[in-house]
């Protein structure tokens, strides 16, 4: 799979972007900004996954409805009682509205995490933390290699045992659990044998001989476009945070709904957030257009 244009930026830029967007999506309670946050995520996820994106997005919409609807069950505050149940427990509009706000936060966070999973490969993750925590990132790298290896080996062992006339995964639950335990046992034996070789191999290639800083093969370079993008993003985040801190985006849901009109700083924050969440999609779109133009000119 070819990565999208935004993914080709430096991992630090990517991380700042996702961390910023997700935290803002959690903090913002102003309905318009919340909607913008979710919409930006949904658009980018559609850019990334195409038609497959709808499965997650539709699921999240369903979750939105459920999470909205259940909040009034836990929270009875609010002036406008829609109806009462269980002998007079009120189901209020305000609690419903607040539920919708939280559900929107949940949906945005999930969507942005789904984008994050596509963009932030393990390579980038380990690259970012490799300098700070070389030993831990190495363990993580090794684990990421071993998991699929063990999965494959487990299948091999299972086939081998079945072909040798041992029962595998048939019969009662008890038998299945026992077969699973034998398989796991065999897998562990093999894994530990391999561990000795891997450790030898590491030491043989000089692991632990260098007392100083561990140099790295740098796969990513922080270029001018990364710097530019980072400045734009940080500016957007700063504007939104200022608005949040000064109360320009303040709203209340319970006990009474109060969504004041946005002051100028609030409008600025709205624009800043919109710019921020649309950055990846815009970069992708620009590249798509550039390709189309270059195709038509040839």
């Amino acid at each position: 799979m070819r990565p999208d244009a935004f993914s080709t930026h430096h991992p630090a830029v990517t991380l700042v972007f996702f961390a910023g967007v997700i935290v803002l999506c959690v903090l913002v309670q102003q309905p318009v900004l919340q909607a913008v946050g979710f919409a930006g995520g949904a658009v980018y996820y559609l850019c990334l996954r195409g038609r497959d994106a709808w499965r997650l997005l539709l699921g999240l919409m369903a979750a939105f409805v459920v999470l909205t609807a259940i909040n009034p069950l836990f929270d009875t505050l609010g002036d406008t009682v829609l109806f009462a149940y269980l002998g007079g427990r009120p189901y209020t509009l305000e609690a419903l509205a607040y539920g919708a706000s939280t559900a929107c936060m949940f949906a945005s966070v999930m969507t942005w995490f789904a984008c994050y999973a596509r963009v932030m490969s393990t390579d980038k993750f380990t690259y970012l933390f490799g300098n700070r925590a070389p030993a831990l990132t190495l363990v993580l790298t090794m684990t990421l290699r071993l998991v699929p290896t063990y999965g494959r080996k487990a299948r091999q062992i299972s086939t081998a045992r079945r072909c040798a006339g041992l029962s595998m995964g048939a019969g009662s639950l008890r038998h299945r659990a026992r077969d699973g335990a034998s398989l796991l046992s065999a897998l562990t034996t093999w894994a530990l044998e391999g561990a000795v070789t891997t450790a030898d191999s590491m030491r043989s290639r000089g692991y632990g001989t260098n007392a100083g800083r561990r140099p790295r093969y740098a796969r990513y370079r922080f270029g001018a476009r990364d710097g530019l993008l980072l400045v734009v993003m940080l500016a957007c985040i700063a504007v939104t945070c200022t608005a949040l801190a000064t109360g320009a985006l303040a709203v209340t849901y319970v006990p009474a709904i109060d969504v004041p009109a946005l002051p100028p700083l609030g409008v600025a924050a709205l624009i800043a957030l919109a710019v921020l969440v649309l950055v990846p999609s815009a970069i992708d779109a620009r590249e798509a257009i550039a390709w189309r133009c270059s195709l038509s000119s040839t």
Binding site: T198, R205, G206, N210, R213
Partner: peptide, 26 residues
């Protein structure tokens, strides 16, 4: 054992591993 000698999860990282460990200049 071709498999167990490999340390990291990516080819490029594996190539660089020894040099990273012995402290080669970047």
């Amino acid at each position: 054992d071709p498999d167990a000698q490999i340390i990291t999860d990516r080819v490029w990282h594996e190539l660089a591993f020894g040099l990273e460990s012995t402290g080669c200049e970047e």
